[in-house]
Design a protein around this nucleic acid. Sequence first.
RNA 1: CGAGGUGUAGCGCAGUUGGCUAGCGCGCCUGCUUUGGGAGCAGGAUGUCGGGGGUUCAAGUCCCUUCACCUCGACCA
Length: 477
Amino acid sequence: MADQKKVEAITAIDVDFTQWYTDVVLKAELIDYFSVKGCMILRPYGYAIWENIQKGLDGMFKATGHENVAMPLFIPESLLQKEKDHVAGFAPEVAWVTQGGSETLTERLCVRPTSETLFCDHYSRVIQSWRDLPKLYNQWVSVVRWEKTTRPFLRTTEFYWQEGHTAHATAEEAKLETRRMLDVYADFFRDFLAIPVVKGLKTENEKFAGAVDTYTIEAMMHDGKALQSATSHYFGDGFARAFDIQYSDRNNQQQYVHQTSWGLSTRSIGAIIMVHGDDSGLVLPPRVAPVQVVIIPIAAHKPGVLEKAQQIQSQLGASFRVKLDSSDKMPGWKFSEYEMKGVPLRLELGPRDLQQNQCVAVRRDNGEKIVLSLDNLTADVQSLLDQVHDGLYRKAQNSLDSRIRSAVGMADFADLIQNKPGFVKAMWCGDGACEQKIKDETGATARCIPFEQETIADTCVCCGRPAQKMVIWGKAY
RNA sequence: CGAGGUGUAGCGCAGUUGGCUAGCGCGCCUGCUUUGGGAGCAGGAUGUCGGGGGUUCAAGUCCCUUCACCUCGACCA
């Protein structure tokens, strides 16, 4: 009976993963659809996750010396067009404003799809001396990319993100920054989202428009597909030359700056959903969960129950994000509801517990029930939340490790991609033609050239010529 | 952008060859009783039938048009 109802609420995860995803984002009240294609309304519960992501990441940015700024929403067409690779990459998905009030604009304005050009324009004016460097800026904004196929969080027309943009005196310093921020993202995924990632370099075909190098963290979803979860770009002095960003060095010589940019978006919420979720719905990693602990009173009308629950809420509230649900819904209804919404830890408190000075804790990640004494509750809850985080990470790590397989020839490769959800490690000659052929024949793309290289074979999986690099391949969102 | 599908109450749906005041379940509101895995009884509220146009004595139903969403593909740096 209970199972029946659950099945009605959320499609089973392994029956139809796509439908499961749609059910979860709606039923967990993360978003509401909007009347403009690809635009989503972030509801309080969904936005709270984003706020916690912002809080965690922003702290890491500040700790590495970055400052927040806010750039304009509009980019004049002439500004966008200064760097030709960049504009060519983004032109197909740019939204344009051509009218202001009742007047046609003399120059149309692009709604920012990313802000490299805005930062560059600004940097060209505020950087004069080596003393002005480095500039370590970041902004938390939304951007617009006119997408043809959209899905909540994974690919939306407008999405929220942060974009860091830095300018440095030397190429070496900029390269270090690029890698440093990639590490920040990977650490954030591990320590806050409990998601393991593969770090690596994007191929020429896959890199960002205008970048010299693009680094990425790739995560594996429940269905074995890859999600590009954050990227960090090294620009060399390409943008600096296009926008004339020069400084006087210590010898009074004019030099171009070397730049980076790096971003992480609301897509990361899609990663949380698709890595940790299960048949009961969302499973949230404790450190970004809007509600870390939900207290469910049992028989709340019985003397002392509600009072004790409130007391516990107040006590735990000093250390955690706690919700007490004292509504008159049935306890079973509440259990299902907060499981669907992914709350990491549930505390049940009923008359029987009161007598024994205890409560019952239930972990969302594995369903384990633990009886806790009320005497040491704060420490025990902290410990359990940490255990949930670790449990989620370990499970995701196992899932990732067990689904990365090796292929030496195209037949193996195609068979793995088609029949075994996950990533495939294979050697590559470095030729974009092989990369394209692999994509055409198997649907898999080069996710990245991982930092941790192995030699699986001496020859390219596609053409048989000498191999240059081991590449991680996979189908991607 | 191509193929297919779907739009009727907050959600899920029914609505016959066009015919009277557009229904059902869940949810929602009020009251009482309940409470350790989605409670029970009683009473109650809620509709631009996605939008626009047309045919007709009469349109949720037929025609044209338009918009959105979903699935698959193409595209997507």
